[in-house]
Simulated scan of single mutants.
Amino acid sequence: MSSATLTPEQRERILRAATSAPSKHNTQPWWFRWSGDDLEVHIDPRRTLRLGDPTGREAHIACGAAAFAARLGYASLGLGTETVLLPGGGPLSVALVRVTGSAPDPRFDTLYWSLPSRRTHRAPFRETPIPSLVLENLRDAARDEGAWLRGVEQEPAYERLLTLIREATGLEDDRLREERARWVDAPDAVHRLDGVPAGSLGPRPLDPTGAVRDLAVGRDVPGRGTIAFESRPAVAVLETRGDTPLAWLTAGQALMRVLVTGTRYGVAASFANQPLENAELRAEVGSEARHYGTAQMVLRLGMGVEVPPTPRRPLSEVLGPEELA
């Protein structure tokens, strides 16, 4: 283990950045360990979804996003880093964010300051279209991390994707919804610092299009309400060349870079990953691809408005037990 030079305050800054990453149903499926000034990222198997994420694909994506966010935390301290994916030490040791001694990417400081404003946006977007230059910046952000963000804009591909999302929603069984209910507006939500509380669900869409995922579908959430959403939401698919744990982690880093780049320009995102939870439908989502081809995330994008954050656990709960001795 290398010697440590980071102060407790600096370590806290990096960890807060890392834990700001999104995760499916806000399960926060990670834990961290310091190795000198380097940060290990591990999957927490107690926080994975047996039915909703049986292969751990989305847990890997979340941990990849946390690794990229940690890089931004380091950059805000003037420290350059590199991420070693699948560094060894067991199947749940998925990333090592290592200090390199070089200067950080000059773009990272701006992205770091976008972290506190990033939200998963389950409310309507403004009808204002996303500027084409901003969309190009989002594609560049994914490409910089080894992935591809494919905008789905033209017919018939656009309606086909929305149809797949609607079809996947209809195929959900009761067991899957019961598992999700343990994390979404859970009975003990008022005492928890994870999951998605009722206040972060957003309203039900008046005219469901498929691009807006209702995490509480089939359930009555008091005070939630129904409202018209944007008439033609922008949708995009984040893709990787392969479909291995390494590819999933790559997708996570790319996802986080896309999200904070969008936040900088007032663009927010929510997720419509229902068809990716079904092997047959997932293959169809990627069938239109011309570059990479393996669909990892389906994003609804738009010009956002202020929405409440989802909770995060205290840092004492995301560190390995030896860190707290």
Rank of each mutant, 00 (worst) to 15 (best):
R213T: 14
D174F: 12
P104G: 03
G56L: 06
P311A: 10
V221W: 08
H60Q: 08
G73Y: 01
G101P: 06
V307Q: 03
L281Q: 00
E40W: 08
R282S: 06
L149A: 02
W148P: 00
E82D: 13
G64F: 13
H191E: 13
E155F: 02
I227M: 14
P129R: 07
V84T: 13
L215P: 04
F68C: 06
R71T: 15
D188G: 00
E239A: 00
P87M: 08
E159W: 06
E155R: 01
R150Q: 06
N26M: 04
R204E: 09
V307K: 05
L162N: 05
M303L: 15
K24Y: 12
S102T: 14
T250V: 15
T120I: 13
F229I: 07
A228I: 07
L138T: 05
L238A: 04
V221F: 12
Q28R: 10
N273E: 11
V134E: 03
A62E: 07
A186H: 09
S270P: 03
T244N: 09
T261E: 10
I14M: 02
V217S: 09
G320E: 13
T294C: 03
A289L: 00
G302D: 07
E317I: 00
Q154A: 10
V212E: 12
G73A: 04
A70W: 00
I130Y: 09
W31E: 10
V318C: 03
G262H: 10
